Lab assay of single mutants.
Amino acid sequence: EEPWTQNQQKLLELALQQYPRGSSDRWDKIARCVPSKSKEDCIARYKLLVE
């Protein structure tokens, strides 16, 4: 798996703010905001960050 770039991390953080918990299809929308990362990548990264 490719490491996360600073840019991808920033895009993930912005998308998390844009689509708060409870948004419909939240992770699909977030993944579309982060180039070359899947929905599963984004969820895994999020879990890593909040632990």
Rank of each mutant, 00 (worst) to 15 (best):
E1C: 01
E1T: 03
E1Y: 06
E1A: 01
E2L: 01
E2I: 14
P3M: 15
P3W: 07
P3F: 15
P3I: 15
P3N: 10
P3K: 15
P3L: 15
W4K: 03
W4A: 00
W4G: 02
W4C: 02
W4P: 02
W4N: 02
W4D: 03
T5N: 11
T5C: 05
Q6V: 13
Q6D: 14
Q6C: 13
Q6W: 04
Q6T: 13
Q6N: 15
Q6G: 10
N7E: 15
N7L: 10
N7C: 14
N7K: 14
N7R: 12
Q8G: 01
Q8D: 10
Q9C: 10
Q9Y: 02
Q9V: 14
Q9D: 06
Q9T: 12
Q9R: 09
K10A: 08
K10D: 10
K10N: 07
K10Q: 13
K10F: 09
L11K: 10
L11P: 03
L11I: 06
L11S: 08
L12T: 01
L12Y: 00
L12H: 01
L12V: 00
L12K: 00
L12M: 10
E13N: 07
E13R: 07
E13Y: 09
E13I: 04
E13Q: 08
L14V: 11
L14W: 09
A15T: 00
A15F: 02
A15C: 06
A15E: 00
L16E: 03
L16Y: 06
L16K: 02
L16D: 01
L16Q: 04
Q17E: 11
Q17R: 11
Q17P: 07
Q17T: 12
Q18L: 10
Q18E: 10
Q18I: 04
Q18H: 06
Q18N: 07
Q18S: 10
Q18P: 00
Y19I: 12
Y19G: 01
Y19R: 00
Y19W: 09
Y19L: 04
P20E: 04
P20A: 04
P20N: 02
P20Y: 02
P20S: 07
P20F: 01
P20G: 07
R21V: 14
R21T: 11
R21E: 14
R21I: 08
R21S: 12
R21K: 12
R21A: 13
G22S: 10
G22I: 11
G22R: 06
G22L: 07
G22Y: 04
G22K: 06
S23Q: 15
S23C: 08
S23Y: 11
S23K: 06
S24I: 13
S24D: 13
S24F: 03
D25R: 08
D25H: 15
D25K: 04
D25I: 06
D25Q: 09
D25V: 05
R26C: 08
R26T: 09
R26K: 06
W27K: 02
W27Q: 03
W27A: 05
W27C: 01
W27L: 02
D28R: 11
D28N: 12
D28V: 09
D28A: 09
D28S: 13
K29P: 06
K29M: 13
K29S: 12
K29R: 13
I30G: 00
I30S: 00
I30A: 02
I30E: 04
A31G: 05
A31W: 03
R32D: 11
R32I: 12
R32V: 09
R32P: 05
R32Y: 11
R32A: 13
R32L: 12
C33S: 13
C33Y: 08
C33N: 06
C33Q: 10
C33W: 13
C33M: 09
V34P: 01
V34M: 02
V34R: 00
V34A: 00
V34N: 01
V34E: 00
P35E: 09
P35L: 05
P35S: 07
P35K: 12
P35W: 05
P35V: 07
P35N: 06
P35R: 07
S36I: 09
S36P: 13
S36Q: 13
K37E: 00
K37F: 02
K37W: 00
S38M: 05
S38C: 06
S38L: 03
S38N: 08
S38V: 03
S38I: 05
S38E: 06
S38F: 01
K39P: 15
K39F: 00
K39H: 03
E40F: 05
D41N: 09
D41E: 12
D41I: 01
D41H: 06
D41Q: 13
D41L: 04
C42L: 01
C42G: 02
C42I: 06
C42N: 00
I43L: 11
I43D: 02
I43E: 11
I43H: 08
A44Q: 13
A44D: 05
A44C: 11
A44L: 11
A44S: 12
A44N: 10
R45S: 01
Y46C: 08
Y46R: 04
K47F: 08
K47I: 06
K47V: 06
L48T: 15
L48M: 14
L48Y: 07
L49Y: 12
L49N: 13
L49R: 14
V50L: 12
V50M: 11
V50C: 13
V50Y: 09
V50H: 14
V50W: 14
V50T: 11
V50D: 04
E51C: 06
E51H: 15
